[in-house]
């Protein structure tokens, strides 16, 4: 590993903005993940406050029902995929190598890549708020056909956003698995690992198993909307679809 051979002198990070763009250091990337998720937490929090402010009294006071639905949908997506998940990945980036005595993550360049996909994914998702059709408004469980035939045209951005964050999650998860399996310090057997490492090890396997299912579902949505397929319109498939959505987005993310 480059980091191991370059250790003749404890040189510090590069200077300027390019330090953060090009970094392969697990601590830098971990910090970026954490700040990113904090920004997303505040963004999703503002949306939640808009929702709660509208619900303060019966009657419609501040916003219209169509904007309300956009707010609840975006709040769910941003909090789960933008705040909670990246924060956990950020903590893993910082702490897993330190806890198992590894010099860095096993795949440092991929680590950089999996972080830098995220701002673009969420940029795409947030951008839909400023389109004429408005942001996705079908709930973060996106049941068809409300999320296909009856959806605003911005749903395509939502689908690509989910694809990108799926890629990011899978890369992050693979990185964690490989690090834990290969880079443990001598004597750090599996049953000596701290529990934080253990829980992440198991979560990473769940993510690898489930993210492709989620990606498959949104791909079916994409095909239905733009290429005239009918994956999600036949009755049996609706059920299957709901199951996919549930197993994909809900269960593993909550794991409870």
């Amino acid at each position: 590993m480059t980091t191991a051979t370059a250790s003749h002198d404890d040189h510090g990070p590069a200077k300027g903005i390019m330090r953060w763009v090009l970094t392969t250091n697990h601590k830098d990337i971990g910090s970026m993940y954490l700040w990113f998720s904090f920004i997303m937490l505040l963004t999703g929090g503002v949306m939640a406050l808009i929702v709660r402010a509208e619900l303060f009294q019966p009657g419609m006071q501040l916003i219209r029902p169509e904007f309300y639905n956009q707010m609840t949908t975006m709040h769910g997506l941003i909090m789960v995929f933008g705040a909670i998940m990246p924060a956990f990945v950020g903590l893993a980036n910082w702490m897993v190598p330190l806890m198992i005595g590894a010099p860095d993550m096993a795949l440092p360049r991929m680590n950089n890549w999996s972080f830098w996909i995220l701002p673009f994914a969420f940029g795409m998702l947030l951008f839909t708020l400023f389109t004429e059709a408005g942001a996705p408004n079908f709930g973060w469980t996106f049941y068809a056909p409300l999320s296909t035939t009856y959806a605003p045209s911005s749903v395509t951005y939502f689908i690509f956003g989910v694809h990108m964050m799926g890629i990011s999650s899978i890369m992050g998860a693979i990185n964690i698995i490989v690090t834990i399996l290969n880079l443990r310090a001598p004597g750090m057997t599996l049953m000596k690992m701290p529990l934080f490492v253990w829980t992440w090890f198991i979560t990473a396997y769940l993510l690898v198993a489930v993210m492709p299912v989620l990606a498959g579902v949104v791909t079916m949505m994409l095909m239905d909307i733009h290429f005239g397929t009918a994956f999600l319109t036949r009755q049996v498939v609706v059920i299957l679809y709901c199951s996919n959505t549930c197993s994909g987005s809900l269960v593993t993310l909550k794991c409870i």
């Binding site: 250790s7 190598p97 330190l98 806890m99 005595g101 010099p103 310090a185 000596k192």
Partner: peptide, 23 residues
């Protein structure tokens, strides 16, 4: 307790260039 508390605070830019030995 744990390896992360054996390194200096703040954690230097590179850590565990030499793998520690866990007993």
């Amino acid at each position: 307790e744990g390896l992360e508390w054996t390194i200096p605070s703040p954690a230097p830019y590179h850590t565990f260039a030499e793998p520690p030995h866990v007993k």
